[in-house]
Amino acid sequence: MPPRPLVLWLWPVWLLVVFFSGLFAQVGPSPTPAAPDTDVSARSKALELAGAFSNDGYKIRDGYWPGEIEPNRPQFLEVNLFSGNEYWFSAAVNPPGRKIAVGVFNETGKPMDFQTYEDGQVAAAGFVPEVSGRYYLKLTLLEGEKAQFCLLYSYK
């Protein structure tokens, strides 16, 4: 399994931030309301997630896989991976999609063991192939309605 990027080890700090920001919210309303989520494209959300992995030495490929996904109709992408390399596949979905997941299968369609990161509209799969060759990525819309998605590919 690829090691978790340092940034993602910091979630306990993030938990404290959320907790204490909640405490301060008791004192008064926030002066800056959050921007509507629809302003953020799937690609930029996926880039934000992939950026966390690049802090750990992963290189983001220039290409990306955009498309439309709907419930009960997963999308599949063929990729060719090298044994020994470590990969993260980061995806994001726009509203009205609410929750997605990324899966990894070998060339015969057998599910592989991989590391997951799932946080609602963004998700990633971390994978270290033991055999070079063809693999398939599966993108599933777990919650929400038909929406635009984008998937990015990082390796090291």
Binding site: G67, G109, P111, M112, Y136
Partner: peptide
């Protein structure tokens, strides 16, 4: 956010393998 390890659910069907897309800049 949920972090974890997983083997994806059931195997892909031959139909799903056939419908897999190829994007030259990633494939």
């Amino acid at each position: 956010p949920a972090f974890g390890s997983r083997a994806a659910e059931s195997a892909m069907t031959s139909g799903q393998i056939d419908q897999a897309v190829r994007v030259e800049s990633l494939t």
